[in-house]
Design a binder for these strands. Structure first.
Lengths: 214, 214
DNA sequence: GACACGACTGAACGACCGTTTAGCATCTTA
DNA sequence: TAAGATGCTAAACGGTCGTTCAGTCGTGTC
């Protein structure tokens, strides 16, 4: 009898074990046997419930994206972002499983990674627009490219977290590393690094030279 | 007879084929058989020359790191950076093979990735120091963390290149995408995004609250 | 009580992996 | 020319992978 009571089912246990392992080792390096062992069942049952390893991945994608969507809130209010971030940063262990999964999705060629990245760009674009309206942020020349750049900065931190931690002398990418890197990040968004426009002008010259009819 | 004439040897052909495949698909997804086929030899010869697949990877690491070190120049002159970048950006196809390899090294748990990241942080730190001395750059509060953050921004662009291209409507991560994203990147390093210090102050409050004795 | 059905296991299948091995051709050296 | 080292191949070995399959167990239905 298939129980209808939410997520305590064997199927959910398998899915959660898969999310953990996919996030830790990546999709290819996680074997069906390992997932089955972690979930306390036999390898055949994984296929029985999800059809194939790819089907299991799709189920994991759906679950994690839904979870992230719920955490980000349904409204478009950018002010929620800080609350979301605070919530995330205050309980990193609780969310680290899904963060690791998203990290792997984004670096692999995964449909979920594409969806997450694009959603993050849209959210950042909304934040930029709201910041401009409220006067806390300046007008930028290319909003889409700016939002994309800011997202690569954020996700780059997640993807390269191991290196960031090592570079700062920490053993692992945890709250300590995040706290230390947050200062320079926000500082660079507040006070410009360059003292004049010469680098900006030089960049624009190079770009417009490459695209004469831009 | 082992030929001493540089790089036209079979060994070098195998190594170059491996660099290409490791960069395209990653280490685990590239099989010895595929590498052998790409190099036009038999699988056994790969092991004969490099001992094991891991040995082949080490040889690839060494070669790519040496190549990158040579391209970056032996001197510490940060002014060379722009020449290096211009050279790279003008012939992206020529260097894309090694860039892809570095990308994979950095996202995998690879010794070469660690070395590359750390070297990049050191170089960026030198650039910051030189910029401060020459007056083109402002003093930052935490130079090491700032350099680390800037490196994650640069490498994040490389690692997430596929997403950046898609987000901007390009089919692949090429010179077109780089040109478009360079504008916002330099713009944000020149003109601050935030109009006042409230975000910076809020961040510092959160961080110092987390580390009372910082 | 007979039956059907879904959850589940253990063993096996076929494919593919990195690596080993035996052997062949070629070149160096004496 | 004989001996030995080297570059190289084809085939095979042991292991692991995703997946299949036969069959058991427990439960709900008539």
């Amino acid at each position: 009898m298939r129980s209808i009571d939410g997520d305590a089912t064997t199927q959910a246990r398998i899915r959660d074990a898969a999310i953990t392992l996919f996030g830790q080792r990546g999709f290819a390096a996680s074997t069906v046997r390992d997932i089955a062992t972690a979930a306390g069942i036999s390898p055949g049952l994984v296929i029985h419930h999800f059809g194939s390893k790819a089907g299991l991945r799709t189920a994991c994608d759906t679950h994690v994206l839904e979870s992230a969507r719920a955490a980000a809130g349904s409204s478009n209010d950018p002010e929620q972002l800080r609350d979301v971030l605070t919530e995330y940063l205050s309980k990193p262990d609780e969310y680290s499983r899904e963060l690791a999964y998203i990290r792997q999705s984004v670096v692999d060629d995964s449909a979920a990674g594409d969806e997450f990245f694009d959603a993050y760009v849209r959210l950042t674009g909304q934040i930029l627009a709201e910041g401009l309206r409220s006067g806390t942020m300046r007008q930028v020349q290319d909003p889409l490219a700016t939002a994309t750049w800011m997202v690569t900065n954020s996700l780059g931190l997640l993807v390269l977290g191991r290196h960031v931690a090592r570079s700062l002398g920490n053993d692992e990418f945890g709250i300590e590393t995040i706290n230390r890197i947050a200062g320079p990040a926000v500082e660079l968004y507040t006070h410009p690094l360059y003292t004049d426009e010469s680098f900006l002008q030089a960049t624009r010259d190079v770009v417009s030279a490459a695209e004469p009819e831009g």
